[in-house]
Structures are given as structure tokens and as C-alpha cells.
């Protein structure tokens, strides 16, 4: 699948995976591909998206709004403060009874055990930056479409611009939703990209 991808296009996929991981999501969707496209600033897609007024931080916020972020892995003292729980006080009491870092040790031991157990293990590996995150069917479709777009334009490679064309063509995923929320006219965007690369050009 990725043989024909340019360096930048591969970067987009790598970044998409990193975005999914940092959001603690257990899939790579079209929204992560879009964040990857925006993050790979060397790529033509990022430039075109910027010119069309798509802002990376807005898209990121949109992803959080629509899809949320994955499970929290450790208690947040500030968040607990908000409901009147003093995490430091809890920790002090626990340590008086069970020794230094008892809470952290428990959590670490749980993480070690979960490494070897089903769903929680996978979730843990993901949250720790290990393991494989699968593409959603839509993201897979988007990547297939990007290859098809490249071939249709007579290009022997898949660049970031083709992935963007794939996102626009797929048209149904969260990426497309966020793009249309940014006020993008898909036909205009497609024309803009094709103008930029033309048949047989050598963009990234």
C-alpha cells in the first residue's frame, strides 16, 4: 500500500498515528490523517490547507469536541481540587499506611499486569506509546482513494496532496466534517490542488 508514498506522505501516516496516540484514541481515523496532513508542513497539502484557511489547532480542537480524548491514566491534582479533593492529602495518608509512593507503585504494578491481559492490555500499550493502532475502514478507504487519485492524475507516486484529495473524495469521515466546518468548498479545494500539481508534476 505505501510503496508509492513519498517521504512526506509517509510522514503524514506516522504523524496521524502519533496524533491518535496523544489523544489516547484506539484507532487512526480520517481526522488523524487530516491532523497528519496539517502537521507535515513540508508537504503541499499543509500549504494548500493553510492557504484555504484551515488551522491545525482548530481542527485539533474539533477532533476533541467530536471524538473526545481517550481514558485518563492518572489522577490530575488540579481537576480533583475542583471538587474539593486534595490529592496530596490522600497521597500522604496512603503513604503513612503503605509506604512511600504506594499509589504510584500500585498503578505501575497494574500497568505491568495489564500488559499481559486482553483489551486493557491493548489500551495500556496504546496509552504508553506501544503497539499498533489500526486504521478505521474510512481511513483505509481514504488512503486507497489517494492512490487512485494519484493514478488518475498520471502520477507514479502518492504525495500529501493526493492524500488530501483522498480525504475530500471520501467525503464522509470526521476529517471531511471538520473541513466543511472550517468553511472549505470541496470542489474549490480539489481544483486548487489539481492546479497546483497538474499532471506529471513532481510535488511532495
Amino acid at each position: 500500500m505505501f510503496q508509492r508514498f513519498t517521504h512526506s506522505a509517509r510522514q503524514v501516516v506516522v504523524l496521524a498515528q502519533a496524533e491518535a496516540r496523544s489523544l489516547r484514541h484506539n484507532h487512526i481515523g480520517t481526522e488523524h490523517l487530516l491532523l497528519g496532513l496539517l502537521g507535515e508542513t513540508e508537504g503541499l497539502a499543509a500549504r494548500i490547507l493553510n492557504e484555504l484557511g484551515v488551522d491545525r489547532d482548530d481542527v485539533h480542537q474539533g477532533v476533541v469536541d467530536y471524538a473526545g480524548a481517550g481514558p485518563v491514566n492518572q489522577p490530575d491534582a488540579v481537576a480533583l481540587d475542583a471538587i474539593g479533593i486534595d490529592l496530596d492529602a490522600v497521597r500522604r495518608r496512603v503513604e503513612e499506611a503503605f509506604g512511600p509512593n504506594a499509589l504510584e507503585r500500585t498503578r505501575a504494578a497494574r500497568a505491568r499486569t495489564e500488559k499481559h491481559r486482553g483489551v486493557r492490555a491493548r489500551r495500556h500499550r496504546r496509552s504508553c506509546g506501544e503497539g499498533h493502532i489500526a486504521f478505521t475502514p474510512r481511513a483505509k478507504k481514504t488512503l486507497e482513494l489517494s492512490l487512485r487519485e494519484a493514478l488518475a492524475l498520471g502520477h507514479g507516486y502518492v504525495g500529501t496532496e493526493h492524500i488530501l484529495l483522498g480525504v475530500l473524495r471520501e467525503g464522509q469521515g470526521l476529517a471531511a466534517l471538520l473541513l466543511s466546518r472550517s468553511g472549505i468548498d470541496f470542489d474549490l479545494a480539489r481544483r486548487r490542488i489539481v492546479e497546483e500539481i497538474g499532471p506529471d508534476s513532481n510535488a511532495g
Binding site: 481514558p71 485518563v72 492518572q74 489522577p75 490530575d76 481537576a79 475542583a82 471538587i83 479533593i85 490529592l87
Partner: peptide
């Protein structure tokens, strides 16, 4: 909600 999520972990 952040507080609840943290509380759950705790």
C-alpha cells in the same frame, strides 16, 4: 468531568 475522570483513576 475532568475531576470525575481523575477520581475514577484514584
Amino acid at each position: 468531568l475532568r475531576a470525575v475522570a481523575s477520581l475514577r483513576v484514584l
